[in-house]
């Protein structure tokens, strides 16, 4: 319950991001503000501060003011308000996590059921595809795909996805994790197929479509739903890792992973830029995992699931 509360709180805070940026911090978190100034205790100071000591090398963005009206967490190297970006970044992180989990679980459920129900050649082909995706180390697959897709975008017939689109990380992450969900669904469907009620339905001459939708689906759905919160957490972590390797969400848009990446160049001088989004990721993922445990207990008390890796 606490977990759900925390999640709702995070959701609310990312929803108010535009309001916060526009009406409280008076800042645009997507435009560079290299020559900007802000007022701290009555003094106007530059957002990017040149070093005045020693040889005078280096320019450091302003640190946390701990004042919600401006630069609560300081600025990044483009002089943008990190806290405003954190709120906007949360939107993308949660959106990508959720949508890719929906796609992933949906595709996995369909493929897993097809493989488990029909068996034979269909099962063999699908299972080998799962094997390949599984054996291709996750980040390698994601990185390779991203490198190609980020330069050229995705062109599949009439569907065109631009290189900077959010849909690229969504599709990549969803695809990579399909086997994680599809394999257990396949196993479950195989065992269901041996059960009497399905055998009876086959015997009565019902169409495959009807059996799959009316008999198999209702019985596999709970397992897929159990996976869902875990996959959201999982996908969100993966998105942040991809953005960290600068192949996820593209600037000036932000996600928690991209903000961590922006913050790495400032790790030793302005650690909060990288720390804050990481903490947000951890809190969200913990809540999702606890929620996932709860969902599992509710649906399927005996299920043995592997936690998010």
């Amino acid at each position: 319950m606490i977990a759900l509360g925390v999640l709702i709180l995070i959701l609310l805070s990312v929803i108010v991001a535009p309001f916060y940026a526009h009406d409280i911090a008076h800042t645009n978190p997507f435009t560079s503000n290299l020559n900007g100034t802000t007022v701290i205790s009555g003094r106007t100071v530059p957002v990017l501060q040149p070093n005045t000591q020693g040889l005078g090398l280096g320019v450091t963005p302003i640190g946390p003011t701990w004042d919600f009206r401006h630069y609560f967490l300081g600025a990044d190297n483009q002089g943008r308000d990190v806290f405003a970006r954190l709120l906007y970044g949360g939107r993308n992180s949660l959106f990508i996590g959720t949508v890719s989990a929906i796609i992933c679980c949906g595709v996995a459920a369909v493929l897993g059921m097809l493989a488990g129900y029909f068996g034979g050649v269909i099962d063999w082909v699908l299972s080998r595809i799962f094997d390949i995706v599984w054996a291709f180390p996750v980040y390698l697959l994601a990185i390779s795909l991203s490198v190609v897709l980020l330069t050229s975008g995705l062109n599949l017939g009439p569907v065109h996805v631009g290189p900077g689109s959010l849909w690229l990380p969504i599709v990549i992450i969803a695809a990579v994790y399909v086997p994680y969900v599809a394999r257990p669904v396949r196993g479950l469907t195989m065992s269901l197929r041996e059960r009497e009620f399905i055998q009876a339905a086959i015997g009565s001459g019902a169409s495959d479509w009807r059996i799959l939708t009316k008999e198999v689906l209702p019985n596999t759905l709970p397992s897929v739903i159990v996976f869902f919160p875990l996959m959201v957490a999982f996908n969100m972590l993966t998105e942040s890792a991809l953005s960290f390797l600068s192949i996820g969400v593209q600037p000036p848009a932000a996600s928690w992973g991209t903000i961590i990446n922006d913050g790495l160049g400032l790790l030793y001088t302005r650690p909060w830029v990288a720390l804050a989004p990481g903490i947000m990721i951890v809190i969200t993922a913990v809540s999702l995992n606890i929620l996932g445990d709860g969902v599992r207990d509710a649906f399927d008390p005996k299920a043995k699931l592997r936690g998010a890796v």
């Binding site: 957490a233 972590l237 942040s240 890792a241 960290f244 992973g257 961590i260 990288a274 990481g278 990721i281 951890v282 993922a285 913990v286 999702l288 995992n289 606890i290 445990d293 936690g307 998010a308 890796v309």
Partner: peptide, 10 residues
Amino acid sequence: IAAVSVPAYW
């Protein structure tokens, strides 16, 4: 759960 939820690189 917390250990599982921390991004390793972070």
